[in-house]
Amino acid sequence: MSLLDIRNLRVRFATRGGTFTAVDGVDLSVDPREIVAVVGESGSGKSVAMLAVMGLLPWTATVEADVLSFDGTDLRALSKAARRRIVGRDIAMIFQEPMTSLNPCFTVGFQIREMLRAHTGLDRAARQRRAVELLAKVGIPEPERRLKSYPHQMSGGMSQRVMIAMAISCDPKLLIADEPTTALDVTIQAQILDLLKALQRDTGMGLVLITHDMGVVAEVADRVLVQYAGRPVETNTAQALFADRHHPYTEALLAALPERSTARRLPAIPGVVPGQFDRPPACVFEPRCAFAFRQCREAAPTPAAPELGRALCHIPLVGGVPTPVRAEAHRPRDGVPA
């Protein structure tokens, strides 16, 4: 049985300009001991989907799903208090900005011990011992002394280590890491990633890694979910995905990796993720797609077969070439390679 099971998740925000659907029909399942990467540009709804799992969205958001269960418990049926007992203890989350994610008014030790106090029956002395142990585990030297530090006395990498220590303090079954390395120096990024990988291996927890960096995905993920404008556009094992991409967006994301570039200019995906008011009516990726044709502007695509990565595309790519399997009137756009 999978640890986290999400089917057809929809998150809507009530805004002044009307309803905005930030997440639209996302399916995701995470097994114990599995690392799943959720990939997409900023604004593709990756964080929102995970915050919905955590129950951390603001009151303007409505969360709906056919299935939203964790470890056999239906999260939608839980009372707020019951949900708080799971959040933090069984599902923990770390965030993109470690420097601002810790409370500047309290020592690191206080913030870690507070987590233990909320979810475990440890007494004061045991909490202190456990906090020291946790800091040592995430690779912070002189843990006793560091526990007395305030967040502003630490670097970004150090803060993220503290966040990780706090997140794993109650031995969670699932850790959600929301772009944990984005705000850090490149050298630190690799260290944090290695730490997460090692912790995941040692504890056997499931790990959801939200990222926009295909390099990170290649390094750690077992499975990948590619999300675009709130929709799941492709999902596959990491191995299969890196062997062959079936959705033009995934292909473009991978082509945008600097180390893959052979041209003088870095390749980029033209345009930006559509927002509330410029969502295309049919295929959401159509305006930026190199392979788009008439049908893409007229009908919303349905997911392809599992062996094609459930690509949300009329003409899923195979070997970088569109396969007009379901396209009745396939006429490529001018100047597009066939």
Binding site: L56, G88, R89, A92, F95, L102, N103, C105, A118
Partner: peptide, 24 residues
Amino acid sequence: DYVRTARAKGLSPFRVVGLHALRN
């Protein structure tokens, strides 16, 4: 962000608002 962190820790709303937010 740190208020979100406090909520992600599963703390009660009273503690999140009355301690983590109010002190700041």
